[in-house]
């Protein structure tokens, strides 16, 4: 069982080895990198390539570690008790399972994606140390330990908004997805648009890299954005020639909105 590039996702050697090491050692893999380099997509692709179920837990600023384990809905129990519902006698009816529990509960190995872990409060990763290490936790309400039947493959993504605690990092593997080089990018585009002509790809990539090379650009376009942009170009029937006329400084270009996300950057293009 090992992870390889798929027909829709190009993985570098380093990434493949990191994923396979994480699977073998049963340790979570932290993936960092510029936005739009396919961090979240990675988990989906691993799931598809190993044909396993994907459970994703999207972390937000208000997410707590406990929500990933379970939540005890005391309020509806209280309400039910007032209404005299039979359900009320079993506390298990009011335990709402979180994503982690769901993953631990599965009979088959699943992929658990903890997406954008850095969005949550700074204590969030620390609160999950034991759970991710031992793959078990204790449920006080039910007075029992929930243990993973099969240790899930855990992929954690981070956008670097906050530093992660060392104790957390020590328990994980780490991979930094760097921005793809020209050849890899071309491969990635080819995977998405098989029928696209080479000249068109080359022209689009030329514009794209020129943009990325403008130093004063604040938000540099990323892989996912060029994919979207090329889609627009093909729908709009833009030809390679139209793109070739563009130079840094000559202002706007077709569907620039797909690559430039900031009004200051648009102004920069015109200078």
């Amino acid at each position: 069982m090992s992870f390889k590039s798929t027909s829709t996702y190009i993985a570098s050697d380093g990434l493949k080895i990191a994923v396979n090491a994480s699977i073998t050692l049963q340790k979570p893999l932290i993936v960092k990198g510029e936005p739009g380099t396919g961090k979240t997509l990675l988990a989906e692709e691993i799931a598809a390539s190993l044909s396993k179920k994907l459970i994703s837990w999207n972390v937000k600023s208000t997410t707590t570690a406990q929500q990933g384990l379970y939540e005890y809905d005391a309020v509806s129990r209280l309400r039910d008790s007032q209404l005299g519902d039979e359900k009320v006698n079993d506390i298990a009816n009011y335990i709402v399972k979180g994503k982690l529990w769901e993953a631990f509960d599965s009979e088959e190995q699943v992929i658990l994606l903890i997406d954008e872990v850095d969005k949550a409060d700074i204590e969030f990763p620390n609160d999950l140390l034991q759970e991710l290490d031992k793959m078990e936790f204790y449920c006080y309400e039910l007075k029992k330990t929930i243990k993973a039947k099969v240790r899930p493959i855990i992929i954690i993504t981070s956008n670097n908004e906050k530093e992660l605690p060392d104790a957390f990092l020590r328990r994980c593997l780490f991979h930094y997805i760097s921005f793809p080089d020209r050849d890899t990018l071309k491969e990635i585009i080819n995977v998405h648009y098989e029928k696209l002509e080479d000249t068109m790809i080359n022209s689009a990539m030329r514009v794209f890299y020129d943009l990325r090379n403008i130093r004063s650009i604040k938000k540099r376009p990323s892989t996912s954005e060029i994919i979207d942009w090329i889609k627009l170009l093909t729908i709009g029937k833009i030809t390679a020639k139209e793109l070739d006329g563009w130079q840094p400084g000559s202002g706007d270009f077709p569907y620039s909105g797909a690559l430039i996300k900031n009004e200051q950057d648009l102004i920069t293009l015109k200078i």
């Binding site: 050697d13 990191a18 073998t24």
Partner: peptide, 25 residues
Amino acid sequence: ALHKNVINQRVDEFYHLSKSMLVKN
């Protein structure tokens, strides 16, 4: 990881493996 043969005995694979296991930032 080496013991479990995550990688073949090649330096470049060892490079990727050790990088992801030892460097966390």
